[in-house]
């Protein structure tokens, strides 16, 4: 554990809670892509199956349980509790174009050809692109609420901080995981355009427009 890893995790946690609270307080999920949230629920489920097979640390277990719980709570709010406010017409990204190639890639390129490892790899690849339906939705409507941009900023910052964590771990522990690193770079790059807009526009205008 280093400072980049910890702040990355906290940034991720902040993003998840910001989104959950935003939907809960406003009693609306307008402008939020339910498809991205389903993808994140799949990401956490397939990655954290090791909760059932191995114990790493109390911190590790707690965070995994919180992430999974919040992901499903978010999906529940969007598709059940506040379904009437869900903007399905604008959430039109074809997720099969992500899930199918990612599934194929995780079978082809993985550390070990075993069910748990392939599912872990699938979750890493899927996470890197899971935000695309949300970004697509924002580009389609041309605007996002300020709080949604804070959510996206924290979510993007988390993987960027993990990149520094991986650099740290490579230098000080000689550890690297090429699958996580390449997917993490892809994931961070997808947010670059958004980061730029967030910094130059997001802090000063409301509502946020692309």
């Amino acid at each position: 554990m280093n400072v980049f890893r910890l702040t990355g995790d906290l940034s991720h946690l902040a993003a998840i809670i910001i989104l959950l609270l935003k939907i809960w307080k406003s009693r609306s999920c307008a402008g939020i892509s339910g498809k991205s949230q389903i993808l994140f629920a799949i990401v956490f489920t397939t990655r954290y199956l090791d909760l059932l097979t191995s114990f790493i640390s109390l911190y590790n277990t707690c965070m995994k349980v919180i992430y999974i719980g919040c992901a499903y709570a978010t999906v529940y709010l969007i598709y059940a509790k506040f379904r009437a406010t869900y903007d399905g017409n604008h959430d039109s990204f074809r997720v099969e174009f992500l899930v199918v190639p990612v599934g194929g890639l995780s079978v082809l390129i993985n550390h070990d050809f075993s069910p748990l490892e392939i599912l872990w790899t699938f979750s890493i690849y899927l996470e890197s692109v899971a935000i695309l339906p949300q970004l697509f939705m924002i580009s389609k409507t041309g605007e996002a609420e300020t709080i949604t941009t804070h959510y996206l900023f924290c979510l993007g910052l988390y993987r960027a901080l993990y990149l520094f964590n991986w650099i740290w771990r490579f230098y000080f522990e000689g550890f690297f995981d090429m699958i996580a690193i390449v997917a993490g770079v892809v994931q961070t790059v997808l947010y670059c355009d958004f980061f730029y807009l967030y910094v130059t526009k997001g802090w000063f205008s409301r509502p946020y427009r692309l």
Binding site: K64, H111, Y162, F175
Partner: peptide, 10 residues
């Protein structure tokens, strides 16, 4: 091996 993921990360 060193390049194997250790599953400690989230």
């Amino acid at each position: 091996s060193d390049s194997q993921n250790d599953k400690d990360e989230l």
